[in-house]
């Protein structure tokens, strides 16, 4: 019961955010950047402005919708990069073993020791603010858990009959990894990727909040909060709604990841926890 609840709620929230991002151009009542009505700044939520207006008279609702585009792009693309790096390193390390395995293991330990936000901050400082930099910074810094899981799954698969059969049938190493091992570890990798989308959305918001992510005036949930901090007393809604959007998005993908993990793990399915 709980299992379905997680999946359904997670999927609903994730779809909601995806719809908002894709449909921002149609749903948003105002232009997120150009429509700055200074006469109507810091207005509380109303029928014209469902989430109020910010310090420059821009519609918070429209900006939140467009912010979803940034967050989702960063979340999905950076996780795609992370999953690719983590899977490639983890599978090859587990499959070949030896010095390559030691090297990958060492690198994974280093990556785990540097907090990913600190690492991403350093990379952003080098690349400068903007969406492409964010994709690179967050895509390169969060693959260590995927790598570990891919590696340990590969290790246990390597000695199983069907892989051994492929080896004796004379398949090449790359072929075996692609056709025998990869399909069998896709589940856990997908779970990690889904959970990772949530942390990437959080990291993007944090970096933009610190001023090294998405630069204003382009709306991102993180930089909207930077602006809102200054007028917290006068216009709290400008802080509440972008944060709520981050929360709903991250919660959605976390629930989805959790639900998928429960579904994939037969042990969890029988145990009532």
């Amino acid at each position: 019961m709980r299992l379905r609840f997680n999946l359904v709620l997670g999927l609903t929230l994730a779809l909601l955010v995806i719809v908002c991002a894709l449909g921002a151009g149609w749903i948003a009542p105002y232009d997120p950047v150009l429509h700055a009505d200074l006469m109507n700044s810091e207005m509380p939520p109303s029928w014209e402005h469902p989430m109020g207006t910010d310090g420059q008279g821009r519609d918070v609702f429209s900006r939140v919708l467009y912010g979803a585009q940034v967050s989702l792009t960063v979340g999905l693309v950076s996780q795609l990069i992370n999953s690719f790096i983590g899977t490639a390193l983890g599978v090859s390390a587990g499959y070949f073993g030896g010095w390559w395995d030691d090297l990958v293991n060492g690198l994974t330990n280093v990556m785990l020791a540097i907090p990913s936000l600190v690492f991403a901050l350093a990379i952003m400082a080098v690349l400068g603010p903007g969406l492409p930099s964010l994709l690179i910074a967050l895509g390169l810094t969060n693959w260590s858990w995927t790598c570990r899981i891919a590696r340990s799954s590969t290790l246990s698969l390597k000695n199983q009959g069907f892989v051994q059969a492929a080896v004796s049938a004379g398949f090449g190493d790359f072929n075996i990894m692609r056709t025998q091992i990869l399909p069998n570890i896709l589940g856990p990798v997908l779970v990690m990727a889904t959970l990772g989308i949530g942390s990437a959305v959080l990291a993007e918001a944090a970096l933009s909040f610190l001023g090294v992510g998405i630069r204003p005036p382009q709306p991102s949930w993180g930089n909207m909060l930077t602006d809102a901090r200054e007028l917290l007393r006068a216009a709290p809604w400008a802080a509440i709604y972008p944060g709520l959007a981050i929360f709903i998005t991250v919660l959605g993908f976390n629930l989805l990841g959790d639900g998928m993990r429960d579904l994939l793990d037969p042990h969890m399915r029988t145990r009532k926890v």
């Binding site: 949530g198 959080l202 918001a205 944090a206 909040f209 909060l225 809102a228 901090r229 917290l232 802080a239 509440i240 972008p242 944060g243 981050i246 929360f247 991250v250 919660l251 976390n254």
Partner: peptide, 11 residues
């Protein structure tokens, strides 16, 4: 675990 902590701090 899903809460952006700096937003929570703002609240």
């Amino acid at each position: 675990l899903s809460l952006p902590e700096f937003w929570f701090g703002l609240l």
